[in-house]
Amino acid sequence: MRALIVDDSRAMRRIVGRILTERGFETAEAADGQEAIAVLESMDDLPAVACIDWNMPVMDGLELVTAIRARPEWRDITLMMVTTESEQDRIVRALAAGAHEYLIKPFTPDALVEKLDLLGLVPTPGGVA
């Protein structure tokens, strides 16, 4: 099972990447929304989930969610915002745009894993899901 991590902070990509890898995901990364779209367009095997930061240069997370939702061929990708944006109206906006889940920074590794479990994103050990 693949995961795409979209965050302009390299440290954050590394932290999320490590948690996801330990969980059995194969990860890809992008530093902003536009790069994420390029990565997705280049992929034969689409990710099951994209973890998306909100505040990024070039194209932010909300714009990315909207852009992904506009592409029918990407409709199976589960979108999870992973961001410091914690106001209620922000969360509602992200959900309205098409995000499925929302994890607020800072978070513990357990919290990320629990969100993935809630979404039914559990990689099969050692195999392709």
Partner: peptide, 20 residues
């Protein structure tokens, strides 16, 4: 706290049943 609501709570449930 933020850390506590991050644990196990689907975000749709959070915005439905909690207020900041």
């Amino acid at each position: 706290s933020q850390l506590e609501v991050n644990r196990g709570l689907p975000v749709t449930t959070l915005v439905k049943h909690f207020q900041r």
